[in-house]
Amino acid sequence: MIGYVTIGAKDVEASLPFFDAVFGAMGRERSFFQGGWAGYGAKGSDADCYICPPFDGQDARPGNGIMIAFLAGSKAEVDAAHAAALAAGGADEGAPGPRPADSTSFYGAYFRDPTGNKLCVFAKT
């Protein structure tokens, strides 16, 4: 089980509009931005996803083969989060749809954040 996730950002403050848009499309919100860290979670709940500079002080960079997948509540949330990601400067890595193409239980979309981290938003159908 995952307790929380941290996503490294080259510029946390510049990344906030992207993450505000993506998580907002999923009914989540930023609960704080303090000390160079931003926390996101379900409305009224503790943060479970943090956007931050790397602890080692080196530049943030995406990991090869690493992807974080966020569970959405519906196909509509997946569609909205993908559209929000692209509108907020993200790069498309796979339009919303079933994976594999004939799946009746997984609906996902893929994109990269401004730092280049690969993210997925999916719904169980």
Rank of each mutant, 00 (worst) to 15 (best):
N64D: 09
K43S: 06
F18Q: 07
D59H: 05
D79Q: 00
A60R: 01
K43G: 06
A84D: 07
V22H: 07
D56K: 04
A42D: 13
L16R: 07
A76V: 11
G97W: 11
K118Y: 04
M1E: 08
T6W: 03
A109Y: 03
M26E: 04
G8A: 04
L16T: 10
T125F: 09
Y40I: 08
G39A: 06
S103T: 10
T104I: 13
I7Q: 07
R28H: 14
C52V: 13
I51Q: 07
I2C: 11
T6V: 03
K124F: 15
G94S: 06
I7N: 06
D46M: 15
P114H: 04
W37L: 10
C52Y: 15
A80F: 13
G116T: 01
A85D: 14
G94V: 02
R28A: 12
A101F: 04
F122K: 00
L119R: 01
V121S: 05
F32R: 08
I66A: 14
G73H: 13
L16Y: 12
I68Q: 03
F19C: 09
T115H: 11
G73S: 11
E93K: 14
A81K: 03
R112C: 02
I68C: 00
N64R: 15
Y107T: 04
A76G: 08
G108S: 05
G65L: 12
F18T: 02
Y40L: 13
A84Q: 09
A101T: 01
E29P: 11
D56L: 07
S74N: 03
G63C: 14
G94K: 02
